[in-house]
Design a binder for these strands. Structure first.
Lengths: 236, 236
DNA sequence: CTAATAGTGTCTATAAGACAATATTCC
DNA sequence: GGAATATTGTCTTATAGACACTATTAG
């Protein structure tokens, strides 16, 4: 908080104009590869370009920037109640041609089932993060930061469960971790760690059958961990 | 980035007024306890209260919010070239009586030697983080977030070296880690990890003498790690 | 020499990974 | 039964911690 502007609360003397926005890196797993949601911009700047979903912070209605990010997720992707965390804030005079701008970037993880292909605000492209097109503004840096965060947290926490649906088998969950981390994991160790975290509970009687081999048990996240991540002290 | 406001870059239709500031949680170690820098606010709101150093983002001059935070560090604490990282952005309609505000919080680590007691903007109080007074705005939450971040990163990285001066002995460094983490560490393991990280180099011939026991070797951070943190895969 | 802390060697405990054996299913 | 994957048991290896021994200094 500044000690300037004793009489006028307006920051105009210091800040003629700062554009406050949020951007959302919405990630999901398609065919064991991370994909990010891009929208085609309907208006300038960068009209027609595929970019991250984002929007102005609405001071009248948004409780905070996370609420603004949830509004963007709902309005532009049609997604509600998904995992969302604040990433970092990107700012500067050059990142947006409209002027000095500040964007609070958020990262959302979406279960692969029930992904919208058509959002309320037009078509959504789900792009493999390894094959990103050129992105406007500093969106490439924002996506890179999101990937770094997700990969880092996936090393020692339950973060990737938010890429799964309600129920999943342990082999499926391990595949999700491996896709995010880009490396294979030891099966025995993975199961030990999941057990130690106390994150999951077996769904009684629910088994994934149909294949010509032993069925796999379905698991779900315990209610206590629906909102908070579980962590393991020494990584997976 | 919004797709609204096609013709007017102004966000006024969506955001009548958003106050953009930075706040800095400047931490240092005094007598093996973490202390945070507080300044007495010269102007309302919360005039006279002790609060985090902060200020408006200056769109004319600041390259980004980190530059604004460095400016606050220089102008209000007289500190230059210290370790600084962005923490998180705090926002909402209620946190500041002046209106809907957004503060990009940063965390700075200062070596205990050469701390200013008198900053350019008045007296500085260095307060033990365990004995914080009531703080205005949401500064208590910002300090809590900074402490959580620093303690978390100290578990697996070289972050605490930024609380030390140019040279330090390994027993001193271990004491810094223990103060930050609030727990004792195994001496042999600590030295093994420091060795594995490849972070430090012995200062040739520099030993801490004067006490009635074997002198300790002085170490310094290798140039390659002055800007980046070193990490250890499984914590300390 | 004594006291005190620095620095190192080594043994033990714990955790991670490799490997393989058993369990179930569909055909 | 055969093929395939799930699940579990167990051995090996790697890492962390406990403990103690040696090193070096001031007085």
């Amino acid at each position: 908080m500044s000690t300037r502007s004793p009489h006028r609360p307006s920051p105009h003397e210091d800040s003629p104009h700062i554009i406050c926005t949020v951007d959302v890196v919405a990630l999901t797993l398609i065919a064991t590869r991370l994909h990010v949601a891009l929208l085609q911009r309907a208006q300038p700047p960068a009209q027609g370009d595929w970019a991250l979903p984002g929007g102005y912070v609405h001071a009248q209605t948004d409780a905070d920037t996370s609420a603004a990010a949830r509004r963007v997720l709902a309005d532009k992707l049609g997604m509600h109640g998904v995992y969302l965390e604040q990433l970092a804030t990107f700012s500067g005079p050059r990142r947006d041609p409209r002027g000095w701008s500040l964007s609070v970037a958020h990262c959302a993880l979406l279960p692969a089932d029930a992904l919208p292909a058509q959002g309320p605000a037009g078509a959504i492209r789900w792009v493999d993060v390894q094959q990103l097109p050129g992105l406007p503004f500093d969106h490439a840096a924002i996506v890179a930061a999101a990937l770094a965060r997700v990969r880092n947290k996936s090393q020692y926490s339950s973060l990737p469960v938010h890429l799964c649906g309600e129920q999943f088998t342990l082999p499926q969950l391990q595949a999700v971790y491996e896709a995010v981390l880009g490396d294979t994991l030891n099966k025995v160790s993975f199961r030990r760690k999941m057990d130690d975290m106390g994150l999951l509970e077996a769904v009684p009687g629910a088994m994934l059958t149909g294949a010509a081999h032993r069925p796999a048990q379905f698991w779900r996240v315990r209610p206590a961990y629906r909102q908070h991540l579980a962590v393991t002290p020494r990584g997976l």
